[in-house]
Amino acid sequence: MDNELFELAERLGRTLKAKGYKIATAESCTGGWIAQAITEVPGSSAWFDRGLVTYSNDAKVQMLGVNPQTLAQHGAVSAEVAQQMAAGALANSEADWAIAVTGIAGPDGGSEEKPVGTVYIAWQNKNGFSNVERLSVPGNRHQIRKQAVKKAIEGVLSFL
């Protein structure tokens, strides 16, 4: 496990636990890496509710309630889908906060509008807070995914 990610996840755990919150994740391009980083921390069951890896569009619809029209109109890699993924993670969990990530990690699959390295991260809580950010991450597949995981955890820490 990467020390930087472990330390971030540990800090997230301390913060969530102190506030009495739990978190859930909905991941596409990161393939469960956020959940894996979180569960590396001993005692994470006190503050991590669940992680959903919804790699296919069907999984996003079936498990998170992402609207098929949103997928058709904006594509799986979009702010709208990231927000619906986060909302779905909250609706289908006992969590107070959710992180959702969707993106193009490459090496293929990019376009002029959404090149490889395009990642959307959404953060939501049960009190109505919602934020989404588009990243343009340079590097190879591993580097893109790692930066998405790092930014996802840093983002929720900044909102807590």
Rank of each mutant, 00 (worst) to 15 (best):
M1D: 11
D2N: 13
N3E: 13
N3R: 11
E4V: 08
L5G: 02
L5S: 02
L5Q: 01
F6L: 14
F6H: 10
E7G: 09
E7C: 13
L8E: 04
L8Y: 05
L8M: 09
E10Q: 14
R11P: 10
L12W: 07
L12E: 10
T15V: 10
T15R: 13
L16K: 13
L16S: 12
K17C: 06
A18K: 14
A18M: 14
A18D: 15
K19W: 07
Y21A: 11
Y21E: 14
K22G: 00
T25Y: 08
E27N: 09
C29T: 05
T30W: 06
W33T: 04
A35M: 10
Q36A: 15
P42C: 07
S44H: 10
A46N: 14
A46K: 14
W47G: 06
W47E: 07
F48A: 09
D49T: 06
G51A: 14
G51Y: 09
T54I: 04
N57L: 15
K60H: 03
V61G: 01
L64I: 02
G65I: 02
G65C: 04
V66Q: 03
V66Y: 02
N67F: 04
N67A: 09
N67Q: 07
P68F: 12
A72C: 09
Q73Y: 12
V77Q: 00
A79K: 14
V81D: 03
V81M: 02
Q83V: 12
Q83L: 13
Q84H: 00
A86G: 06
A86T: 06
A86D: 05
A86K: 03
A86C: 06
A87F: 04
A87I: 03
G88D: 10
G88S: 13
L90M: 08
A91W: 04
N92A: 07
N92Y: 06
E94H: 12
E94G: 06
A95L: 05
A95P: 05
W97Q: 03
I99M: 07
A100T: 09
V101H: 02
V101F: 01
G103A: 03
A105S: 05
A105D: 02
D108G: 14
G109N: 01
G110P: 08
G110Y: 11
E113A: 15
V116Y: 03
G117R: 00
G117K: 01
G117I: 01
V119F: 05
I121K: 06
I121Y: 07
A122E: 00
W123V: 04
Q124D: 01
N125C: 03
K126L: 10
N127L: 08
N127W: 09
F129D: 09
S130Y: 08
S130K: 13
E133H: 09
E133M: 11
E133L: 12
R134M: 15
L135A: 03
S136N: 14
V137L: 10
G139H: 07
G139N: 11
H142I: 12
Q143C: 12
Q147K: 13
Q147I: 14
A148G: 10
A148L: 10
V149E: 01
A152F: 01
V156F: 05
S158K: 14
S158R: 13
F159C: 15
F159K: 15
F159E: 15
